Amino acid sequence: MRYLDAIDIDQWLELAPQVEIWLAEKLGKPTNGIFTVEEYWKRWSDNKTVKILPEIIAGESRKQEAEKVKQFLNKKAQELIFLGLLYFFKLFFIIYHLHIEILDDCRQM
């Protein structure tokens, strides 16, 4: 067993900013406008006016675009171009599929 004190944890978090942001979110601490994929989706989709479901934007009708994102994330494509979508839809679409890729990778471990 290894004992970690607050200084060890602080130094480790400085070397792993993604973990630092995740931990800050879990502890309810400010993240200065930087969010994990999960928190970004939660804030964007679960607003007071309308609840946005992933299937609305990333459903069956978007299979071709989803494949483009997958190829880009797997470095099989050099660029990622979307036409006709609003900026926040493009951003969400990429974040949604990045989240799906991360979940798939975790399931394979």
Rank of each mutant, 00 (worst) to 15 (best):
Met1Ala: 04
Lys48Pro: 07
Leu4Ala: 05
Leu85Phe: 06
Leu13Ile: 04
Ile102Pro: 01
Leu23Ala: 02
Asp10Ala: 15
Val69Ala: 01
Leu98Ile: 07
Arg62Leu: 07
Lys68Leu: 01
Lys76Met: 15
Ile100Val: 05
Asp105Ala: 12
Ala24Thr: 00
Gln78Lys: 14
Glu25Gln: 02
Trp22Leu: 02
Leu13Trp: 03
Lys75Phe: 13
Lys48Ala: 09
Glu60Gln: 14
Glu38Gly: 05
Trp22Tyr: 06
Leu80Ala: 13
Leu83Gly: 07
Ile7Glu: 14
Asp5Val: 10
Ser61Glu: 15
Glu20Pro: 00
Lys42Val: 06
Asn47Val: 09
Gln108Leu: 10
Asp10Met: 11
Ala66Met: 03
Leu91Met: 14
Pro30Glu: 01
Leu103Cys: 07
Glu39Ser: 03
Leu15Gly: 10
Gly33Glu: 02
Lys51Arg: 14
Ile57Phe: 06
Glu60His: 14
His99Val: 03
Leu98Arg: 03
Ile52Arg: 04
Ile102Glu: 09
Leu103Gly: 08
Ala6Tyr: 11
Ile102Ser: 08
Trp41Glu: 05
Trp41Asn: 07
Arg2Glu: 07
Phe89Cys: 07
Leu83His: 11
Val69Tyr: 00
Asn32Met: 07
Ala16His: 15
Gly33Tyr: 03
Arg62Asp: 06
Asp10His: 15
Gly59Ser: 12
Val37Leu: 11
Leu103Asp: 08
Phe72Met: 07
Thr49Ser: 10
Gly33Asp: 04
Asp105Leu: 10
Ile100Cys: 03
Val50Leu: 10
Ile21Thr: 02
Leu27Val: 01
Asn74His: 13
Gly28Ser: 06
Glu79Gly: 12
